[in-house]
C-alpha cells in the first residue's frame, strides 16, 4: 500500500468527523465526543499502521484492531467505510433495525470487526488471549492494537489483563488509551482519579509512551516505536480532545453520550468544512 501524505491523512480524518456527525444526527442517539476525538487515531490505524485488506477482512496475516470502548464505534464504522470495507451510504443505517452497524459493535454482524464490545473493560483481556494463541502458533509477527477508553480504566478487568500481559510479556500488543479526561458523570479525575496513569501502566510491566492523540504523525510514530519494544506490551497514552473539530463540543463532558440535533449538526458540519479548507490551504 502506498503511504498517504500527512495532508491526505488529515483530510480523511476531517471527512470521517463529518460522517460521524451525519451518522449521529440521522440515528438520533449515540456518543459524539469520543468518536470525534478518536478520528485521527483511527485514520492513522486504518490508512497507515494496520496490515489489513478491506476486501478480505478475514485475511489470516492481518493485524488485529480491538475496540474495547465499544460506544466509540461510530468512528470505526466511518473509518472502515472510507477504507473500503463497505459503502458509505450504509453509515446512515447506524442504530436502525436490521443494520449491520449496531449501536455498539457486534462482531458477528459486520466483517472486519474483531470483537463485540460495549460493556467496558474486556478488550485487553481478549487481546491477551489472541496474543497467547499467536505465540503458540508462531504468529507473533502479527500486531494486536487495542483502543481503550480512559474512564473505562475504572474497571477491574482492565487491570487483570494488564497483569496477565505483563506476566507473559505479550509484546505484540500495542494498546492506545484515549485519554480525553471525560466520562459520563464528569471529568475522569473527579469521577475516579486515574493519575498517575503512566506510572500505573509502567508498574504493571508495560512500556508506556505519551503523545498528542490528535496528531496523526505522532500516532504513527508512537506505534512504530511500540513495535520496536521487545519483551513488553506497549501502552500509548494518547491525549485527545473530546469532541475534536467541533468547537461547542470540545472538552465538554455533556457531549459524551448524546448526538447533535439538526441545528447543532448543521453548525458542526459547517465548522468541519471550514477546517477541511484550512487543512488543504496549510499544506499548499
Amino acid at each position: 500500500m502506498q503511504k498517504l501524505s500527512l495532508k491526505q491523512l488529515e483530510t480523511i480524518a476531517n471527512s470521517i468527523r463529518e460522517d460521524i456527525i451525519r451518522m449521529l444526527v440521522h440515528a438520533g442517539s449515540g456518543h459524539s465526543a469520543g468518536p470525534l476525538g478518536l478520528a485521527d487515531i483511527f485514520t492513522a490505524l486504518y490508512f497507515d499502521i494496520l496490515k489489513h485488506d478491506p476486501k478480505n477482512p478475514d485475511w489470516d496475516e492481518r493485524d488485529i484492531l480491538l475496540l474495547s470502548n465499544g460506544h466509540c464505534v461510530p468512528v470505526r464504522y466511518a473509518t472502515m467505510a472510507r477504507a473500503g470495507y463497505f459503502d458509505r451510504s450504509e453509515l446512515m443505517t447506524l442504530r436502525q433495525l436490521g443494520s449491520r452497524l449496531q449501536g455498539h459493535p457486534e462482531r458477528t454482524r459486520l466483517p472486519g470487526l474483531e470483537n463485540t464490545s460495549g460493556p467496558l473493560g474486556s478488550g485487553l483481556s481478549q487481546a491477551c488471549g489472541m496474543s497467547l494463541a499467536m505465540r503458540m502458533d508462531n504468529q507473533s509477527h502479527r500486531w494486536i492494537y487495542v483502543v481503550v477508553g480512559d474512564g473505562e480504566q475504572d474497571e477491574g478487568n482492565v487491570w487483570e489483563a494488564a497483569m496477565l500481559a505483563g506476566k507473559y510479556k505479550l509484546s505484540n500488543i500495542i494498546a492506545i488509551t484515549d485519554r480525553n479526561n471525560i466520562q459520563i458523570d464528569g471529568p475522569t479525575e473527579q469521577v475516579m482519579p486515574l493519575e498517575d496513569l503512566k506510572a500505573k501502566w509502567q508498574a504493571f510491566g508495560w512500556h508506556v509512551l505519551e503523545i498528542d492523540g490528535n496528531d496523526i504523525e505522532a500516532v504513527i510514530d508512537a506505534c512504530a516505536m511500540g513495535r520496536a519494544v521487545e519483551n513488553k506490551p506497549v501502552m500509548i497514552i494518547a491525549h485527545t480532545v473530546p469532541g475534536k473539530g467541533v468547537d461547542f463540543m470540545e472538552y465538554d463532558f455533556h457531549w459524551h453520550g448524546k448526538p447533535p440535533n439538526k441545528e447543532e449538526a448543521k453548525k458542526a458540519l459547517h465548522e468541519l468544512r471550514t477546517l477541511g479548507g484550512k487543512i488543504r490551504s496549510e499544506h499548499e
Partner: peptide
C-alpha cells in the same frame, strides 16, 4: 506450552478465553 495460569481473576479468565477462541483455539 498450551496451559495458561491466569491467577485469581475470573473476569480475565473467560475473556482471555474469548481471545484464544478468536484465534482458532
Amino acid at each position: 506450552e498450551r496451559y495458561i495460569e491466569i491467577g485469581v481473576a475470573e473476569q480475565n479468565l473467560v475473556t482471555t478465553g474469548s481471545g484464544l477462541a478468536a484465534m482458532g483455539k
